[in-house]
Amino acid sequence: MIQNLVDGVLVGSVLSLGAVGLTMVMHMLRFANFSHAELLSIGAYSALVFDALFSAMMPPLTAAIGPLSMTWALALSVVFSLVITGLSALLIDRLVFKRVREKGSELSMVFASFGVAMIIRNVVGLIFGLGTHLYSKDIVFAVVLSRDPLLLVKPDQVFTLVAALLIMLIMHFVLSRTTLGYSLRAVAENPTLAQVNGIRLSHMIALVWLVGGGLAAVAGIFYGLSNQISPMIGRDLVLPIFAATIVGGIGSIYGAVLGGFIVGISASLALAILPSGYSPSMPFLIILAVLLIRPNGLFGEEQT
């Protein structure tokens, strides 16, 4: 039970990172982006490529960092992957979403995002194969935290959690202390008013894609670190990430962070009761529960 809780916290940190980007896009551009989870996949795979590249070019970098399975090469790859994924998100917006936005309704955007997700997922599958990959084939042994009850934690998992919390802390600082953060929140709340206050909308939209893509990349890599990398990352995570945004309330960044942990933890805890085959159903049950009890989420505002 406690093991489930620990696992849930770790899954939660990945979901939170994904949900923060998604909730920002959903709020600012007002559409449910079904292709957001594919950005996690882009992030995970581009880190894989950079990791191989750096390891080949600079063999000393293949040394693992402390007790982690993560190598210096992979750590460096995270930075590059973050940029590549952010730029990919921006590029997808320019190529597809921006044009659909100028032409059609918000629902056409939802639809377009389905198409985009399908294309990305299968292009990734074509390039990297349908099988799974790992960043490191070395087995890192879990640290036994306690024997009764048995509690195992891998150093990678602790690192993931700490890094995720650190990123959220930085996000919090930017949003609550800087005028750039105020501008982002302002555009999310009321784009027209933000514009007449001198904020250039197109720049803010680009920024949101960059930030959302960057966070998704980190989430994707962390997911790959504790699980496997496969073209199905997007398919498997799209619903849990949506659930996290709905739990938190669409548009609330803090809600998305909390929502990610709530979905991660409750899905893991539920597995203590339900057979593990049912885990893909958990996010939907959580969504249903939220819609029944508190439709606008924990921090969401009423919107139509």
Binding site: Y182, S183, R185, A186, E189, N190, L193, A194, N197
Partner: peptide, 13 residues
């Protein structure tokens, strides 16, 4: 006005 920002943040913006 931006309801979710504080008065100070509105003015800073």
């Amino acid at each position: 006005i931006f309801r979710t920002l504080t008065i100070r943040q509105n003015l800073d913006l």
